[in-house]
Design a protein around this nucleic acid. Sequence first.
DNA 1: CATGGGATTGACT
DNA 2: GTCAATCCCATGC
Length: 195
Amino acid sequence: MKPSFYERPVLDVARDLIGCAVRHGGCVGVIVETEAYHDSEPACHAFVGLTRRTETLFGPPGRAYVYRSYGIHALLNAVCEPAGVGAAVLIRALEPVEGLELMAARRGLDGAAPARALCSGPGKLTQALGIELTENGCDLARGPVVIEPRAAGWGDVPVSVGRRIGITKAVELPWRFCVTGSRFISAPVRAVEDR
DNA sequence: CATGGGATTGACT
DNA sequence: GTCAATCCCATGC
């Protein structure tokens, strides 16, 4: 995807990335779950302003923001909006389509493990695709981590909206997007009016 | 320089 | 349902 795709309101990009594909390390998966983050709200790392950690978030759109979570997992984001704005889309789940055996091996799972176990969470998918912190800042059009346009059949899938997962601030914002009814997402979507 | 908190996951009661 | 692993980095003394 070109930089112009990402240089738009982060909520639009989060919705439009549903159905696109992520390619890395000999594996491909279709994005079925995303969340939006923006420096105007406190759940976003960029809320604290420009620091060493948030450099990539405030940089040009179309780059990967990869950071370590809980000391264990690498989480993948796509940087959005013009340079100077700290915004990104967290990739939370993929439907595996290529390199399933390699994904299972990287995840330490048996080859017979169900496909839904491979990439159904932001830490799981980076492990399955072999994405590490060294990919932070990489150009998502050139790689090593590449995001590709929607393939046939993914052009017009229904999308559900809900609240973001695993955060303690700004929990009420409906900034999570999922393929409606997908078995490959990390957790069920609760209706926005549920609270 | 010391401290504390995670955009999570998997193992266990 | 509970809980620990583990490390980067922002903050405060």
